[in-house]
């Protein structure tokens, strides 16, 4: 099962790439934990998470070909 991850702003600074695919992840919480293992700095980041462009607030099941996007807050104006 493959899902696409998109990251924005400061999160992209941490991951180094803006988009990639991973497989074997069943839920958004599992994904968040996996990302922190891979990029420990993410543990300190606040971000909004969207599955297929809809923001989620609780652990959400992931399905084949879902796209998960991580959007950090910006303050600049």
């Amino acid at each position: 099962m493959e899902i696409t991850i998109l990251v924005f702003g400061q999160i992209k600074e941490i991951t180094g790439i803006a988009a990639w695919q991973i497989s074997g992840i069943k839920s958004t919480e599992e994904l968040a934990a996996k990302l922190v293992m891979q990029f420990p700095e993410l543990a300190l980041m606040k971000y909004a998470m969207a599955v297929n462009k809809i923001l989620i607030q609780t652990d959400t099941e992931l399905n084949e070909n879902d796209t998960v996007a991580l959007l950090p807050p910006f303050s600049g104006g």
Binding site: L44, M45, A48, L55, P73
Partner: peptide
């Protein structure tokens, strides 16, 4: 969208 503000260190200006 963002219930909690980020730490200053993780959200630079």
């Amino acid at each position: 969208l963002f219930p909690e503000p980020p730490d200053a260190s993780s959200a630079p200006s």
